[in-house]
Amino acid sequence: MWITEIYKHNHRLQQLSPAVRALYWAPAMVLALVSSSVYFNWAMFALVNICLLEISRVGMSNLTRLYRIPVAFILIGCFVIVLEIPAQKAFITIAQLPIGLSTDGLQLASLLLSRSLALISILYFILLTNTISEIAELMRKCRIPALFIDLFVITFKFIENLRHTSFEMYRAQKCRLGYSGNGKRIPLFAGLMAAVFHQSMQNAKLLETAMQARCAGENYCFLQNERQFVPSQLIIPASFVSAATLLLLICCNYGW
């Protein structure tokens, strides 16, 4: 599952400029980073996902699928933190080594899990409500060096190219009964990787030629559709930020 596959061009923030859109996610990201409250992080995670479903017009099933890989990685990390070897209260002993769960580790893991998920949901919010050129434009407005922005755009384009090429080639291999026998899988996969990189480099070169033919210079220039700014656009993000800050204060006040 790739974000470019499920991105909806007609999302609800489409009429807002990337700078105004940033007001939806930037404060949330800051609050999630500074918060040490598990409850606040879970609330933020839930709220951002509800907003995502409503704003980005992405379906629940697609959104759930997006979380599969990051959640798998986070859970493995949390599991390592939670384990205590040798444990005082062991629930299993392997080769005379008592293995158990640590109380401190559980607290840390729950904080890590909640904070990671809150931040990932905010990251998905950014990616599902902004195109790559809008993010680049926002970075340009934030005075991030042009070299870094160009690298960001080039890397994105190359990964996309790689994905497209690998998908096409993998499908072509499958059509010729590739990957059908156990002994064939690894050599076929190695061959696929080599061919994909070769083809992707060629495609990237062709793309560069096409860009040069249209007078592309050192910096990528993408001109977006003009978007009007009206102060009323700030009401919703301001309310959202106020509510989130209030919630964080309540959580901190009660030591949750």
């Binding site: 809008e134 096409a210 860009m211 993408f222």
Partner: peptide, 14 residues
Amino acid sequence: NQLVAPSVYEEVAF
């Protein structure tokens, strides 16, 4: 191999 921008508008404006 020619399409580089994320939207049709930006592609025409490129």
